[in-house]
Amino acid sequence: MEIEEARRGTSLVVTPTGRLDSGSAPDFEARLGEDIDGGAHDVVIDLSRLDYISSKGLSALLSAGKRMKRAEGRMVLAAASGAVRQVIVISGFDRVFELHDSVDAALGG
């Protein structure tokens, strides 16, 4: 899995590409962990380039979210579409995370 990161003002936009499943979730989680420990306290996860997310992927997001909470920062999700959005909504994770329609909306929020 490719993970792109870009600074937008004081925020960090993290964009995973492809599948977030048991194969890629550990790397993704480790990367977010490094970002948070490195001082990124306002993170937007851009899900627009994600094709698939499994329970392990959700678990990685959850774990990063808890870490962010401990660091007293903010981590939100944005731009989920299709199957990924469906998984997040069906499994009730839109009540666990802020879910924005676009990265811009997430940054403005």
């Binding site: 959850l62 909504v89 069906i90 499994s91 009730g92 994770f93 839109d94 009540r95 666990v96």
Partner: peptide, 12 residues
């Protein structure tokens, strides 16, 4: 019926 679920157990 695609009713929206609550979050899973163990999450929050």
């Amino acid at each position: 019926e695609r009713t929206q679920a609550d979050p899973p157990i163990g999450v929050m």
